[in-house]
Structures are given as structure tokens and as C-alpha cells.
């Protein structure tokens, strides 16, 4: 494939440009997906049946830890992409690895949080509220999990193949995905946790 050197590596080929536009459109679809989940959540927020309400089960500490972990990871992947543009393969891989570790830690805390909910009687089957809460959080968590594997594969490919237009393109797209998950989390943090605790 022809490579255009005036553009960053990840935009270098025609196919790369298509991939990036396609991914942005995919993120548009993802916005609708989470918007639907949020709309459903707001509809069912106070329909707690015989189960607990949000204020009774939300704990600020794990949520804050999760938020800090994910925000930091969004920062480190930004550094990773910056390093990639400078052509510094090892720095980039390190930042990507740090990102994934932070993501893994986030997932760990989220799993703890879920077991906590089940313990205090807010399992999936308790009420409409707990059902949609755990589904929404779970959908985000599943996205993070997929992201962890995806990121790992990309690091492996960069290690093996170096920074080519193809690997740079994949890394850049992965960073878009990761930032997107961060944005979704900010919404979850503000409109599910903070609103629920107030």
C-alpha cells in the first residue's frame, strides 16, 4: 500500500484513514448504546421494589479509586500515543502496558464492588433498579475487559512488528476506544454514583 509521509503514521495509508473514520462511526453507535442504557437507568432509578435504593448501597471509596485509576489510564494512553508519534517504540509500549495495568486494577475494584452489592442484598435479581444498575456497570466493565485483551494483543504486535502504519493505526484506534470508555465512566460516576448518593 502507498504510504503518505506528510501525515502521522496512523493516518498514513488509505485503509488507515478508512479504519479511523469507521471507528469514529462505531463510537457513535456506542454512544447510542450507552445512552439507551442510561435512559433506561434513569427511568428505573427509583423503582427499587423491596430492594435497597442507590443511596443505601453506593460506597464512595471504591468508586473514587476506580475513577482515579481510569482517568490516570486515559492520561497514560495519551502519553503512549504521543510516544508513538515520536517513534519511540519502547516508551510507547511501556505507557500502553501501564494503561492496561491500571485498567486491570479498575476491573479488580469493580469486581469487588459487585460482590459488595450482592452481599448487601442488591444482586441482579432483586429489583428493576439493581438489575439495570448492574447491567449498565457490567456493560462498561465488559468493554474494559475486551479492551484489556485488545490492548495486550496490540502491544504484542508492536513488539514483534515494530511501528508500522498498520500497528500505529491499531494503537491509535485502541486509544480512541480507551478514551471513550473513560468518558462513559465519567457519566456513570456523575449520574449514577454522585446523583444516587445525594
Amino acid at each position: 500500500m502507498k504510504t503518505d509521509n506528510s501525515l502521522p503514521l496512523e493516518y498514513g495509508t488509505e485503509q488507515n484513514k478508512l479504519n479511523i473514520l469507521g471507528f469514529w462511526i462505531f463510537l457513535g453507535a456506542e454512544v447510542m448504546l450507552f445512552a439507551t442504557l442510561f435512559a433506561t437507568y434513569f427511568t428505573l432509578e427509583h423503582r427499587t421494589g423491596s430492594g435497597p435504593a442507590g443511596a443505601e448501597i453506593f460506597e464512595i471509596t471504591p468508586v473514587l479509586i476506580e475513577t482515579i485509576l481510569l482517568l490516570t489510564s486515559s492520561f497514560t494512553i495519551g502519553l503512549g500515543v504521543h510516544a508513538m508519534r515520536l517513534g519511540r517504540k519502547n516508551a510507547m509500549m511501556t505507557f500502553f502496558a501501564v494503561t492496561l495495568l491500571l485498567g486491570l486494577a479498575f476491573l479488580g475494584v469493580e469486581i469487588y464492588e459487585f460482590t459488595h452489592y450482592v452481599h448487601v442484598g442488591a444482586g441482579l435479581q432483586v429489583s428493576a433498579f439493581t438489575g439495570i444498575l448492574l447491567t449498565t456497570l457490567g456493560t462498561h466493565g465488559a468493554h474494559v475487559t475486551v479492551g484489556l485483551f485488545w490492548g495486550l494483543f496490540i502491544i504484542m504486535q508492536v513488539k514483534k512488528r515494530g511501528l508500522t502504519p498498520e500497528t500505529a493505526n491499531k494503537s491509535f484506534i485502541f486509544s480512541l476506544y480507551w478514551h471513550f470508555l473513560d468518558v462513559v465512566w465519567i457519566f456513570i460516576f456523575s449520574f449514577i454514583y454522585l446523583k444516587g448518593m445525594m
Binding site: 453507535a29 456506542e30 447510542m32 448504546l33 439507551t36 442504557l37 433506561t40 428505573l44 423503582r47 427499587t48 421494589g49 423491596s50 430492594g51 441482579l124 435479581q125 432483586v126 429489583s127 428493576a128 433498579f129 438489575g131 439495570i132 447491567t135 456493560t139
Partner: peptide
Amino acid sequence: PVLTVTLLLGTMDRLFGTHIFSMTNG
């Protein structure tokens, strides 16, 4: 994506016992 979520929630209700569209528990 709206359909995806709708079907997902329906599946949750039918297979995993959530109460999103049910007549009880909210």
C-alpha cells in the same frame, strides 16, 4: 444500538431473572 440494548435487557429478564420489564419488584 437501541435494539441491541432492548434485546439485551429482554434477555436479562428471561434468562437471568432481572426485573426490568416484569410485573413485580419495580
